[in-house]
Amino acid sequence: MATPKLCGLLRTKTAYYRTPDGERMFDLDSTTACYTCLVTQQPIGPDGEPVDAGRCGADRGCFEEER
């Protein structure tokens, strides 16, 4: 399954580790992952909505590419 493109500002514990290919690691099936947005440092996006791997794709208004 191809990993959908996720916002470059989305943060979660596993994303501080990288896959063997050097990609940030997201476990999309995890039910225990806690996500935050780097802009707010909260599990809340700049748009006031929750953030997680299911919500922080390219279609969200506040989406940013990974820097």
């Binding site: 995890s30 039910t31 225990t32 992952a33 806690c34 996500y35 935050t36 909260q42 599990p43 809340i44 929750p50 997680d52």
Partner: peptide, 12 residues
């Protein structure tokens, strides 16, 4: 409930 956040699963 993860409060204003998520991650409250326990299925492991």
């Amino acid at each position: 409930s993860g409060g204003v956040g998520g991650g409250s699963g326990s299925s492991g």
